[in-house]
Amino acid sequence: FSITQFVRNLGLEHLMDIFEREQITLRVLVEMGHKELKEIGINAYGHREKLIKGVERLI
């Protein structure tokens, strides 16, 4: 299971460039909250919320 699959499953594949540029893996994403996601350029609250909720389902 990769970050690419995870992001695609959430319908947020347009954010993949950010994850690749910042070298974010699923392991790193698990540790990130709204503040960190915003810092790397994910400005939409809804997108950040989707990512965080998606990660919570993985754990």
Results as ranks from 00 to 15, higher is better:
Glu31Val: 13
Lys50Cys: 10
Glu36Phe: 03
Ile40Trp: 03
Ile24Asn: 01
Asn43Ile: 15
Gly46Ala: 15
Val28Ala: 12
Gly54Val: 06
Ile42Lys: 04
Lys50Val: 10
Arg57Gly: 09
Leu58Gly: 02
Phe6Asp: 00
Leu51Val: 08
Gly46Leu: 12
Glu13Leu: 12
Met16Leu: 14
Glu36Ser: 04
Val55Lys: 04
Ile40Lys: 06
Val30Thr: 13
Ile40Arg: 04
Ser2Ala: 09
Asp17Cys: 10
Arg48Asn: 01
Arg21Met: 06
Met32Phe: 07
Lys53Tyr: 07
Leu37Ser: 00
Met16Ala: 11
Met32Pro: 00
Ile24Trp: 05
Thr4His: 14
Leu37Tyr: 05
Arg21Ile: 06
Ile24Thr: 05
His34Pro: 04
Phe6Trp: 07
His14Phe: 15
Lys50Asn: 06
Arg8Thr: 14
Ser2Phe: 07
Gly33Cys: 05
Tyr45Ala: 11
Gly33Thr: 07
Met16Tyr: 06
His14Lys: 09
Gln23Phe: 07
Ile24Tyr: 04
Leu58Ala: 06
Ser2Trp: 07
Leu15Ile: 09
Glu49Phe: 07
Ile3Phe: 10
His34Ala: 03
Glu13Asp: 13
Leu29Thr: 04
Glu39Cys: 08
His14Met: 12
Val55Tyr: 08
Gly54Tyr: 06
Lys50Trp: 07
Gly11Asp: 07
Leu15Ser: 00
Gln5Phe: 07
Arg57Met: 14
Leu29Cys: 02
Leu15Thr: 02
Lys53Gly: 06
Ala44Phe: 12
Glu31Arg: 15
Gly41His: 04
Val7Pro: 00
Asn9Gln: 14
His47Asp: 15
Val7Gly: 00
Arg27Lys: 13
Asn43Arg: 12
Val55Met: 09
Gly33His: 07
Glu31Trp: 10
Glu13Ser: 13
Glu49His: 10
Thr4Tyr: 14
Ile40Ser: 04
Ile3Trp: 05
Phe6Lys: 01
Phe1Asp: 11
Arg8Gly: 09
Ile59Phe: 13
Arg21Ser: 07
Ile40Thr: 03
Gly11Glu: 07
His47Lys: 05
Lys38Asp: 07
Ile52Trp: 03
Gly46Tyr: 13
Gly11Gln: 08
Glu20Asp: 12
Ile24Phe: 04
Ile18Ser: 03
Glu56Ser: 10
Glu36Gly: 06
Leu10Tyr: 04
Leu37Asp: 02
Ile24Ala: 02
Lys50Ala: 14
Leu51Asp: 01
Glu13Val: 11
Ile59Pro: 13
Phe6Met: 06
Asn9Arg: 12
Asp17Glu: 15
Thr4Met: 11
Leu29Gln: 02
Arg48Ser: 05
Met16Gln: 09
Arg8Lys: 14
Leu51Asn: 00
Tyr45Glu: 09
Ile40His: 04
Arg48Cys: 07
Ile3His: 01
Arg57Ile: 11
Ile18Arg: 05
Asn43Tyr: 12
Leu58Phe: 13
Asp17Gly: 12
Glu20Gln: 13
Leu12Tyr: 02
Leu58Gln: 05
Arg57Ala: 15
Arg57Glu: 13
His34Thr: 02
Glu49Asn: 09
Ile18Asp: 02
Lys53Val: 09
Lys35Leu: 07
Ile24Cys: 03
Ile24Arg: 02
Ile40Gln: 03
Glu56Pro: 04
His47Ala: 15
Ile18Glu: 01
Leu58Thr: 05
Leu10Ser: 03
Gln5Met: 11
Thr25Asn: 09
Met16Lys: 08
Met16Asn: 08
Gln23Met: 09
Ala44His: 15
Asn9Phe: 10
Lys38Trp: 07
Gln23Thr: 08
Ile52Asn: 00
Leu10His: 03
Leu58Met: 11
Phe19Val: 04
Gly46Phe: 10
Arg57Cys: 11
His14Ile: 14
Glu49Cys: 10
Arg8Asn: 09
Ser2Val: 08
Lys35Trp: 06
Ile42Pro: 02
Arg48Trp: 05
Phe19His: 00
Leu29Ala: 02
His14Glu: 14
Val55Ile: 15
Glu13Cys: 12
Leu15Ala: 03
Phe19Met: 06
Glu31Pro: 08
Gly41Arg: 03
Glu20His: 10
Lys35Gly: 06
Arg8Val: 11
Arg57Phe: 11
Gly54Met: 06
Leu12Ile: 05
Leu37Met: 09
Gly41Pro: 01
Glu49Pro: 02
Gly54Thr: 06
His34Gly: 02
His47Gln: 13
Val28Gln: 15
His14Gly: 08
Arg27Thr: 11
Leu15Gly: 02
Arg57Asp: 12
Thr4Ser: 13
Ile40Pro: 01
Phe6Leu: 11
Arg21Leu: 06
Leu58Ser: 03
His14Arg: 08
Leu10Lys: 01
Thr4Leu: 15
Glu49Gly: 04
Glu36His: 04
Lys38Ile: 11
Glu39Thr: 09
His47Cys: 11
Arg21Phe: 06
Lys50Glu: 09
Phe6Pro: 00
Glu20Ala: 10
Lys38Gly: 07
Ala44Arg: 11
Ile3Asn: 00
Arg27Gly: 12
Ser2Met: 08
Glu22Asp: 06
Ile24Asp: 02
Leu26Gln: 02
Lys53Ser: 09
Leu29Met: 07
Leu12Asp: 00
Glu39Ala: 14
Glu56Gly: 08
Gly11Asn: 08
Val7His: 00
Ile18Phe: 06
Phe19Pro: 00
Glu20Asn: 14
His47Val: 15
Met32Thr: 01
Phe6His: 01
Val30Leu: 11
Asp17Phe: 15
Leu26Trp: 14
Gln5Tyr: 09
Tyr45Leu: 09
Glu31Gln: 15
Asn9Met: 14
Arg48Met: 06
His14Gln: 14
Glu36Cys: 04
Leu37Glu: 01
Glu13Lys: 08
Gln5Trp: 09
Ile3Asp: 01
His47Phe: 07
Gly54Trp: 07
Phe6Arg: 00
Arg8Ile: 13
Val30Glu: 08
Leu58His: 08
Leu15His: 03
Thr25Ala: 05
Gly54Pro: 00
Val7Arg: 00
Glu36Val: 03
Ile40Phe: 06
Gly33Arg: 07
Arg8Asp: 05
Glu22Met: 05
Glu36Gln: 08
Arg8Trp: 08
Leu10Arg: 01
Gln23Tyr: 07
Glu22Ser: 09
Leu15Met: 06
Gly33Trp: 02
Tyr45Arg: 11
Leu26Ala: 05
Val7Leu: 15
Lys53Thr: 09
Glu22Tyr: 10
His47Ser: 14
Leu51His: 10
Glu49Asp: 12
Glu36Trp: 03
Lys38Thr: 11
Val28Asn: 13
